[in-house]
């Protein structure tokens, strides 16, 4: 059994595993934020494990099990999905246990200290857009969840790998051949999945908060070059609240933070098939904010 830590500020995960591909992929993706025993942080937020399931099944069709503090939230998955399972497990762990922030299912990118949230359901092209922006002058704060400081409207980075699915895996590998990617997990419940390493700049700035100035709901549509709609606040709030993870835990604190954010941010829905145009629009919009 191997132990390592992932120092993905603001959380430190300690992971036990007997699955070699988990260690290899974590090291490749998180680089200097992958800590071996000699560099371990004393303070660990979450203890996770990813191990082969026991029994005779391992000889024919091996599976892996994810545990958080000895709880097993998911059914076992095929062993080739082990690293993806770790990433999903880390998301689940934070979404379920984090009380200090209002958490929204959203990508977060920033420029000049100003952040835009991109809340979106699967299939909207969020991660592909995130990957593109994160390598074109924007700082990645998160691909998956926005950690918003209650009442202050600042977002805390939680810099992690970007989860690419299906066609976007090869697309991103063509765009950014020099970046590190995890092994592809084939035929998961989300299709084929690979994780892209966050940029060195994003990791280096992982303790720098950014102020939320905009909320953009992306929708990839191959038939539309770029359509932009400014949303009214009630409509934007409804979509925003649908992506909230922990309103039920935070109660009024979460609701008040979300309404304050919507009142103070620019709000757009974009339909696009060209990420360069989206980048150009967002850069201009954020410069004028």
């Amino acid at each position: 059994m191997q132990e390592f830590q992932l120092n993905t500020s603001p959380f430190v995960f300690q992971i036990s595993t007997n699955v070699p591909m988990v260690v290899e992929n974590a090291k490749r993706i998180y680089k200097s934020h992958f800590l071996t025993e000699k560099d371990f942080r004393a303070s660990v937020d979450y203890h996770l494990s990813l191990t082969y399931t026991g029994g005779i099944r391992r000889l024919t069709k091996s599976q892996v099990t994810f545990k958080c503090d000895d709880r097993e939230p998911f059914k076992p998955l095929p062993a080739n999905q082990a690293f993806a399972m770790l990433e999903w497990g880390m998301n689940w762990t934070v979404a379920l246990h984090e009380f200090q922030h209002v958490i929204i299912h959203s990508a977060v990118l920033a420029k000049d200290g100003k952040a835009i949230l991109f809340p979106a359901p699967p299939g909207s092209g969020k991660s592909t857009l995130t990957a593109y922006l994160a390598n074109h002058g924007w700082r990645l704060l998160s691909d998956e969840m926005a950690l918003i400081t209650p009442y202050e409207l600042n977002v805390t980075p939680f810099v992690r790998a970007i989860c690419l699915k299906n066609a976007s895996i090869n697309l991103c590998k063509q765009w950014f051949p020099d970046l590190a990617y995890s092994d592809t997990a084939f035929a998961t419940h989300k299709g084929d999945v690979a994780h892209m390493a966050p940029s060195d700049n994003s990791l280096a700035c992982a303790r720098e908060q950014a102020r939320v100035v905009g909320v953009v709901f992306p929708n990839y549509d191959k038939s539309l070059f770029l359509d932009i709609y400014e949303l009214d606040k009630a409509n934007a709030f409804m979509q925003f609240a649908n992506n909230a993870f922990n309103f039920n835990l935070l109660g009024t604190l979460g609701f008040d933070t979300a309404t304050a954010l919507i009142e103070n941010a620019f709000l757009y829905e974009i339909h696009y098939n060209n990420v360069e145009e989206v980048e150009r629009f967002l850069s201009e919009r954020i410069t004028n904010t």
């Binding site: 009214d232 606040k233 009630a234 409804m238 309103f247 039920n248 008040d256 309404t259 919507i262 009142e263």
Partner: peptide, 23 residues
């Protein structure tokens, strides 16, 4: 919370944590 652009009002039920937005 009545939105400042007059687009609607949203309500938070502190008992069951339901959010209802009325346009």
């Amino acid at each position: 919370h009545p939105f400042s652009d007059n687009s609607g009002v949203t309500f938070f039920n502190t008992v069951n944590m339901d959010i209802t937005t009325s346009f």
